[in-house]
Design a protein around this nucleic acid. Sequence first.
DNA 1: TTTTAATAATTGGTAATACATATTGGTCAA
DNA 2: TTGACCAATATGTATTACCAATTATTAAAA
Lengths: 262, 262
Amino acid sequence: MSTASGKKNQRTYRRVAQKMLKALDSGQFPAGARLPPERELSERYGVSRPTIREAIIALEVMGRVEVQTGSGVYALKSFQTKSDNPREYSPFEITEARVLIESEAAALAASTMTEAELTELEGALKEMIEENDSGNLTSEVADRKFHSVIAHSTQNRPLINVIQHLWDIQANLPEIKTAHQSVCRTDGSKRIEEHRAILNTLKDRDCHAARVAMRNHFSRSLDALHTTTEERAVEEVRRQLNERRERFSLSRIQYTSKPESI
Amino acid sequence: MSTASGKKNQRTYRRVAQKMLKALDSGQFPAGARLPPERELSERYGVSRPTIREAIIALEVMGRVEVQTGSGVYALKSFQTKSDNPREYSPFEITEARVLIESEAAALAASTMTEAELTELEGALKEMIEENDSGNLTSEVADRKFHSVIAHSTQNRPLINVIQHLWDIQANLPEIKTAHQSVCRTDGSKRIEEHRAILNTLKDRDCHAARVAMRNHFSRSLDALHTTTEERAVEEVRRQLNERRERFSLSRIQYTSKPESI
DNA sequence: TTTTAATAATTGGTAATACATATTGGTCAA
DNA sequence: TTGACCAATATGTATTACCAATTATTAAAA
């Protein structure tokens, strides 16, 4: 209850800092990104600029952001990725790790989720639907928000951090991105339905059903990943073929002046 | 900067917070003492009230002071900083995160484990038995090796990394250490049996049983943690009582010369 | 093309003010 | 004397408005 969100009598800077912390965790401001200027934040959160400054200082002391005078406030990475070489991970590994961990998080969240968080989830779902309708396929913010809210509802900070970390890694993998776009393009509505199913199990506080729903969701993601990886493989072969053909023709054209040396 | 007290180009709130930190460390404001009001501090340090507020918030986030609305700012004990420091996780959180993740890792390992890895596990178990017999209670190397082999057998590098990371964190928590020592001292053989049970389920390639066995193992760790935490709490109360008694006797001795004025 | 100066954007910091809450002290009645 | 209530005071909370200092961007000049 010490860290619970009894926001009524809490001081404003704490309330704001909590919200900004969630925004940071949800990937709204990835590491290195510049946050909006103080004045804009003060409008967004409906508080004065000094209060925003206080919240930013709190985040700064927590080591989550860095303030550069005259330039802006920048998000730092929250999870010290020591000798963690994210580039070496395959998208399948990441997804497998995520399915294991996030399914358990969902199961736990089924018993810890508050009404406010359920409302947040519905909001994220709504955003997802809007993104889907508007044809915005590149954005994953609503998706990430959805998963982030579930993670936060467990109130287990190491777990939140781990989930966030895995998302950060996968966000940098191009295969994941194309797979995500592909699944949005071909089965957008189905994907929405999966998220809604998860939401419903959480509403019912059915931890077993939540685990299953989350697993189903990921298993579809994994399928999409397999499919697009296959497509990419075919595409790659074709590209290499074309490249070879082009180089061959180029070499013939330039042969009289200078041979290619690469 | 035109101000004479130019300490590099650091921001004012940091400069002030450093000074106040020094004052706290020097015992100028012992634990529980009330700091001067904001208005007075702003005069003393020659800065405006908002800046003083910023410095106080920094100290608050660092867990050095506590602010009570309408009453004042109070110094806290420099060690008892568990309020909101996100870097420091509670041992319960860590253990909860581990039980979720490592149980799934065990379930996965049940199908991926090789014969060589099973042999390694048996070796780790043997080491654990030897450690237990020799009365070496502080070492956790065999325990860690056991869990590490299971993690590695999943061949999922992100998962391995996460498990490693959580172990690194918990290894630095004193509560975990004492709990581990306690469980080794009181129920060493039972702990060995739990590990053997996990090993057996992996030999049988029974992923469900592996998950359950791992959960059981952790649930016992959690119990031990609860117990030792309780013991520590009792110890703390006893210590404080003794401290008070000592102080009381001192005041009686000094009463003839000077009455205590607190 | 590179360098430099002007301009805009952004954080840094202060002052004055109003408000909310906790503490204090005093009055009055039982 | 004791207890309860109430008003005054002290203290933190938060806002608005303003200007200064620093950095980033752009345009002009060499």
